[in-house]
Structures are given as structure tokens and as C-alpha cells.
Nucleic acid binder design. Structure first.
Length: 155
DNA sequence: GCCAACGTTGGC
DNA sequence: GCCAACGTTGGC
């Protein structure tokens, strides 16, 4: 099993929005970055676990856990001129952008903030903490995953 | 293929 | 609101 972290702005789509979706499942659409697209298309597999990260908000950090319930398939918001993520260069015959479906697993007992993550040398190599990383999807190692879940209860 | 200009992300 | 980082665009 692989582990991931995906960012979303809570003002736009937060973990409570996922919780309230039918089946607590949603398409993770709107990713318009090739590195992230490649992960959605090639690397994210059924059953993989994903940290839900709130970005661009009062307390940026990890707030919950999701599970991949459908592997990469074309992001059809790219074909819709009325959608904010419309991309005229994505051809339905050869889709440029991909998405996966994710399902809510649980909300952490507390937000593990970016600030807190930065305190731990064990996490220094996390993609999230590397300078200037603005990817909205990134891999998390097993060791990092377990360490972070340990932090949840370590207060 | 280079690179300047521009747009976006996202922490602070 | 500021600004550093970085991806994309487009002229040449």
C-alpha cells in the first residue's frame, strides 16, 4: 500500500465537505500540474491511504485520512467551458488531466499543523516540508505516515 | 532552446 | 496583503 498527502483549501473543499458527500466519497478533480497528474494516473492505487491537508487557512496542517476508492480516470471538468478548471487544450480523445475518487476514513483527533510537522527531524525529508514545494499531491513514506499518526496521540 | 514576463500557490 | 518559489507561456 502507498501513502499520500493531498492539499485542499478548506474554504473551497474541506474535510467536512468530504464527510457530507453521498457515500462520503468525491472525485478529486481540478489538479492541473503534470507531476501531480502523473501520480494520479500512474501511482495511486485502490486502498492507498491519503492525508487530507488543509492549505491557505488559519491553521495549515493535516486534518484527516482518506482512502483511494477509484484509480485514475479522465478529469471531465477539463472539458466543461463553464467549469473553473476548464482547459481547452485537454482533448476528450486524449485527456490531459486525471482524477481519482477518495473516500473519507476519519478525522484526526486534532489538526497536526505544518508548524508542528516542521519541529521533527524525522520528517525533515518529507516532500511537504521541502522548500518551495507547491505540489497539491505528494507521496508520504510509511515511516513518515506512522510517525505522524504517532504525533496525533502524543499530546 | 533560451529566458523574461507573468500567473499561481500558499505560508506568514 | 506581502512575497518567495516555481510552473507556464510565448517571443525570438
Amino acid at each position: 500500500m502507498n501513502y499520500w498527502l493531498m492539499k485542499s483549501e478548506p474554504e473551497v473543499f474541506g474535510i467536512n465537505d468530504l464527510y457530507q458527500k453521498p457515500g462520503q466519497t468525491e472525485h478529486w478533480d481540478g489538479v492541473r500540474n503534470y507531476q501531480a497528474r502523473n501520480m494520479l494516473r500512474d501511482a495511486m492505487k485502490l486502498g492507498d491511504r491519503v492525508f487530507f491537508y488543509h492549505s491557505n487557512c488559519d491553521l495549515p496542517g493535516i486534518v484527516g485520512i482518506m482512502e483511494v476508492v477509484k484509480e485514475g480516470y479522465p478529469d471531465d471538468t477539463a472539458f466543461d467551458p463553464d467549469n473553473i478548471h476548464f482547459d481547452p487544450k485537454s482533448d476528450p480523445e486524449n485527456p490531459r488531466w486525471m482524477m481519482v475518487d477518495v473516500k473519507y476514513v476519519r478525522t484526526l483527533s486534532r489538526t497536526i499543523s505544518l508548524k508542528e510537522l516542521k519541529l521533527h527531524p524525522e520528517l525533515a525529508d518529507m516532500a511537504l516540508l521541502r522548500r518551495g514545494n507547491r505540489l497539491s499531491i505528494m507521496p508520504v513514506s510509511v515511516a513518515e505516515w506512522d510517525f505522524i499518526l504517532g504525533l496525533e496521540l502524543a499530546v
